[in-house]
Amino acid sequence: MRRLLLPALPLALLLAATACAGGEEAPEASEQAEESDAGAGGDANAEAGAESDALRAAGGFLASLQAVDGEAGCALIDPAAQNVLVEAHGAADCAEAFPAYAESLPDAEGAEVGEAVMGTDLDGDTPIATVTLVFAGGDDPGALELRQDSDDQWLATRLPGTSLGGA
């Protein structure tokens, strides 16, 4: 029995060393494959994630319209677009202007978030989503435009039912 173990021991050590060496190369090859996949499909995945985040922000904006919640609604609007609301409704601030803005739109009770069209600013640096809000009765006050800010938050820059303003 000892004779069989001695020749088998170097073979077992050789196999173990080969397996370990092969195991070290596999993660590098796997990392290279992942980097290659990320380059090919990374942009599509990033755009799908951005679209999902923009639609979620649009849903929050619509919920604030339905609840006529100025604090929540204004938290989703960039400062320039807030100023448009303040000026249009003669209010002291966005939260005060928001209820009048909500009332100026078609009935938001049955409204839904529609499709998003993704794009970027002219430099190609800032993601922009133009989201359709579908109001009951087919009224179309215009699209909601959202931009991703430097904190990766989606903020409304153009609001349905207002004149152009914002960023």
Rank of each mutant, 00 (worst) to 15 (best):
A111Y: 09
L76F: 03
T120A: 14
P10I: 03
R158W: 06
A75Y: 05
A44Y: 06
A57Y: 02
P7N: 07
G60M: 01
A97V: 08
A67T: 02
A21H: 08
V86I: 07
W154T: 00
A12K: 04
A40N: 09
A50I: 03
G166P: 01
Q82R: 15
A136S: 14
D121M: 04
D43S: 13
L144W: 00
I128R: 07
G41I: 02
C94R: 09
E31V: 07
E71H: 06
V86K: 09
A129Q: 00
N45R: 13
A38W: 08
Q32W: 07
G138P: 03
G114L: 02
L13W: 10
D125I: 01
T132L: 04
L133N: 02
G161T: 11
G70L: 01
D149A: 02
A72D: 10
E96C: 04
Q32G: 01
L6E: 08
F98Q: 06
A58G: 09
A92N: 14
A26N: 10
S30P: 01
Q66F: 08
L105F: 10
S150D: 13
D78N: 14
F98E: 05
E47I: 09
A111E: 07
L4F: 02
M1N: 08
E35M: 07
A88Q: 15
P27F: 03
D78P: 05
L105P: 11
R56S: 15
D78F: 03
G161V: 10
Q148K: 02
D93E: 01
L6S: 13
D37G: 09
P141K: 05
Q66M: 10
G110E: 07
G119W: 12
E51P: 03
L13R: 08
C20M: 12
G119M: 11
G70R: 08
A81S: 02
V113M: 04
F98G: 13
S52T: 15
G165Y: 06
L133Y: 00
L155M: 08
G161Y: 07
A40K: 11
Q148T: 01
I128W: 00
A167E: 10
A72K: 01
A63L: 10
G142R: 06
M1P: 10
G165K: 11
A8Q: 06
G137N: 09
I128S: 04
G142C: 02
S163A: 15
L5A: 15
A81G: 03
G90N: 14
D121E: 00
E25I: 10
G60S: 11
V134R: 15
L55V: 12
P79E: 14
A67S: 12
A75I: 05
A21C: 05
A80F: 08
E25N: 03
G49N: 07
L9D: 08
L144A: 01
A8W: 09
L144V: 03
L14R: 06
S150Y: 12
G49I: 03
R147D: 00
E71R: 13
L6D: 11
D125R: 09
I77F: 03
C74L: 05
A116S: 09
E28D: 09
E51T: 11
A80P: 12
Y101V: 06
T130L: 10
V86R: 05
A44E: 12
A72C: 00
L5E: 13
F135K: 14
G114D: 04
D37N: 07
L164W: 04
L13C: 12
Q32A: 15
I77D: 08
A143T: 07
A26Q: 13
D151S: 13
G73W: 10
D78T: 11
A29I: 10
C74N: 12
E24W: 10
V86N: 02
D121G: 01
